[in-house]
Design a protein around this nucleic acid. Sequence first.
DNA 1: CGTACAGTTGAGTTTATTCAAGAAGAGTGG
DNA 2: CCACTCTTCTTGAATAAACTCAACTGTACG
Lengths: 244, 244
Amino acid sequence: MLTRYPGALEMLNRKMGGLDRLSAQQRRILSAVPIRVVEFGANREIIRAFDRNPHSCLLLQGMAYSSKINERGSRQIVAFHLPGDFLDLQSFYAQVIDVTVTTTTLSKVGFIQHEDLEELATDRLFDRAMAQSIVIDAAITREWVFNLGRREGVSRTAHLLSELLTRMRDIGAVQGDQFELPVTQVQLGDALGMSTVHTNRCLKQLTTRGLISWIAGCLRVLDPVALAQIGDFEDDYLHIRAAA
Amino acid sequence: MLTRYPGALEMLNRKMGGLDRLSAQQRRILSAVPIRVVEFGANREIIRAFDRNPHSCLLLQGMAYSSKINERGSRQIVAFHLPGDFLDLQSFYAQVIDVTVTTTTLSKVGFIQHEDLEELATDRLFDRAMAQSIVIDAAITREWVFNLGRREGVSRTAHLLSELLTRMRDIGAVQGDQFELPVTQVQLGDALGMSTVHTNRCLKQLTTRGLISWIAGCLRVLDPVALAQIGDFEDDYLHIRAAA
DNA sequence: CGTACAGTTGAGTTTATTCAAGAAGAGTGG
DNA sequence: CCACTCTTCTTGAATAAACTCAACTGTACG
C-alpha cells in the first residue's frame, strides 16, 4: 500500500506558498521533507476521531470528508477535502483530532510526521502557510454554519455545489464547468444536514430548473451564475487569490 | 472611551499558556505588549466583516458574538465570545475578516497591533498558543455544524447552553451552576439557526422539564447532567484541561 | 442470478416557520 | 410618579419545510 508519488512534493510546494514565492533554499528544504504516500480505496478511514497521531496528512489525489458521529448514530459531515488540502493539520497544534476523515473514492494521501512539520515551522513563511490553511478551513466551516442555519434545502444545496465548483476550479479540476464529484447523495445529505430523501428532491429541483446535471459521478454546472444566486454564494470567504 | 485596564495583561498571560508555564523572561515580554483597552456599550460593532484591521482583539469583559449577514437580511451567529477569547485572531493570519463581531452587553476589549503579535510569534510558545486558540475555535464551529445539522430544536438548544455553561465554568464565571447570560432570545435563535418563536418554545420546554431557569439575564442550570444528555453534549472538543 | 448499494418516488407525520397579537419589562421625559 | 415608547418575551393558529417509512428502480459486481 505504500508507494512513492511524485505529486506529493508539488502539493506541498503549492500549499506552502506556491513555487514563485519560495526561495531556492526553501524549495530545497521542502524537497527534503519525508512524505509517506499511501493509497486508500473508497470509503476508508484515514484518520479516526480522538486519535493522537504523530503525523498530519495532505490529500494528494481523490476526495475525502471529515465527519462527526454521536452515540445515537447521527452523522454530520463537517468538511469536504479536495486534492491539495491538509486533512488534519489541527492535530499538529492540538495533538488530538475531533473528527474522522474518510475517503469517498480511491485516494492518495501523504503523511508528514509532526516533528518534520515542527522543523518546517521554524521558517516563518511555512509557519504562516500552515496557519493560513487552518484559518481558511475555519472560514469555510463558518459559512457551513450559515448554510445549515439560514438557508432552506434547495438554496443550501446550491451553495454547497457552488463552493465545490469554486474550490475545484481553483485546483484546476474543472473543465467547462464540469468536474468529478465522487460523492453519494447520502454523503451530500450528511453534509447538508438533511435526509437523503430531501437531498434527492433538492437536487432534482436544481436539475429540473436547468442549473445542474449530475450523471455518473460527474457534476456539470449548466448555469454557475444562477446556481450561485440561488445558493446565495459569494466566494470571498474562500480566500482564493484572483490570480489563480 | 479609552481606558487602562489591569485585567488585560492577565488575560494575555492566561491565553499565552498560563502563568505557571511562562518563564520570567516570557512574562516580561508579555507585560511590555501595548494593549489599548476600549469599552463598548451593548450591541456595538467591534469588528466589521471584510475590514482589514492592523490589530486583533481580546475580549476582557462582557460578551460578544461573531455573525454573518447576507444581502437578503438573514443573520447567523457563528460564535459566542467570552472573556479571555480572541475575537478575530484569524485576521492576523488572513489579513481580512469574514465576520462581524458585536457586543451583547457592556464590554471591555483589548486591541493588540498585528506587528506586536508578529513580534510575540517569534517565541515558539506564544506562536503555538495563538494557533491553538484558532484550532479550538474551529473545533467549536465544527460542533455547531453538527448541532445545526443533526439535532432538533430542544436538543440543539440544550447543547448550546451546555457549551456555554462549560466554557463559563472554565473561566470561573459560574457559581452554583448559575451564570450571567446577557443574550436575547433573538440572538440565541440566530445562533441556533431557528426562529425566535421556536427558540422561545424550546427554552420553555427545558424550563418546564426542570432543567434550566433563565431569569433576568441569569441562567441557572438546575440539572447539568440531564441538560448535557438531552443536548447530546460531550465536552472533549472544547479542549479544556481537566486541571482547570 | 442474487446481493448490495445508490437513487427515486409517494404518502403521512413531525418539526419549524410565519403571521399576528398580547404581556411584561426597561428606560425616558414630563 | 405616571404615561409613553421600545424592546423582549410569550402564545395561538395557519402554513410550509423537512422527516420518516416504505416501496420500487436501476446498476455494479461476484
